[in-house]
Computed example of a mutant assay.
Amino acid sequence: MSAPLRVLIVDDERLARERLKDLLAEAGDMQLVGECRNGNEAIAAIDAERPDLVLLDVQMPGPDGFGVLRALPPESPPAVIFVTAHRDFAVQAFEANALDYLLKPFDRERFRQSLARARDRRKALASPLDTELLARLEALTRRPPHEPERYVTRLVARVGWRMRFLQVEDIDYLTAEGNYVSVQVGKQSHLTRETLSALEAKLDPKQFLRAHRSFIVRLDRIEEVEPLPPGEYVFVLRDGTRLTSGRSYRAQVQRALELPT
Rank of each mutant, 00 (worst) to 15 (best):
A135H: 14
M163G: 05
A135N: 15
R164L: 12
A139C: 06
L134I: 02
L115H: 09
F111L: 00
R119D: 00
I171Q: 05
H146S: 10
E109T: 12
T153A: 11
T153K: 06
P128T: 03
R136H: 10
L140A: 06
R119S: 01
A116M: 05
L115R: 06
D120Q: 11
E138H: 06
A124P: 06
R150G: 10
T141V: 07
Y151M: 03
L133C: 02
A116N: 11
R164E: 15
A139N: 07
A135Y: 09
L125P: 13
T153I: 08
T131P: 15
Q167T: 11
P144M: 03
V156W: 02
R164W: 12
E149L: 11
L134K: 08
E138Q: 09
L134W: 04
R150I: 12
F165V: 03
P144R: 10
D170M: 07
A124V: 13
L134D: 06
L166G: 02
L129M: 14
A118F: 02
R164S: 14
G160H: 10
E132S: 10
S127M: 14
I171D: 00
L137G: 07
L166D: 01
G160K: 07
E132Q: 12
A118T: 03
K123D: 12
R136C: 08
R143I: 06
Y151Q: 07
R142C: 03
P148F: 04
V168N: 00
R136T: 09
R121W: 08
R121Q: 11
R112M: 13
G160S: 09
Q113L: 12
L133G: 04
V156M: 05
L155C: 01
M163Y: 14
E147W: 05
A118E: 00
L137M: 09
D130T: 06
R142M: 06
S127A: 10
R110V: 07
S114V: 01
V159Q: 10
E147Y: 08
E149K: 09
R136E: 12
R122L: 07
L166Y: 05
Q167D: 13
I171E: 03
T131M: 13
V152S: 00
D120M: 11
Q113N: 14
S127N: 15
Q167K: 14
P145C: 03
R117D: 00
L155M: 04
R142L: 01
E132M: 12
V168M: 00
R154K: 13
L129C: 10
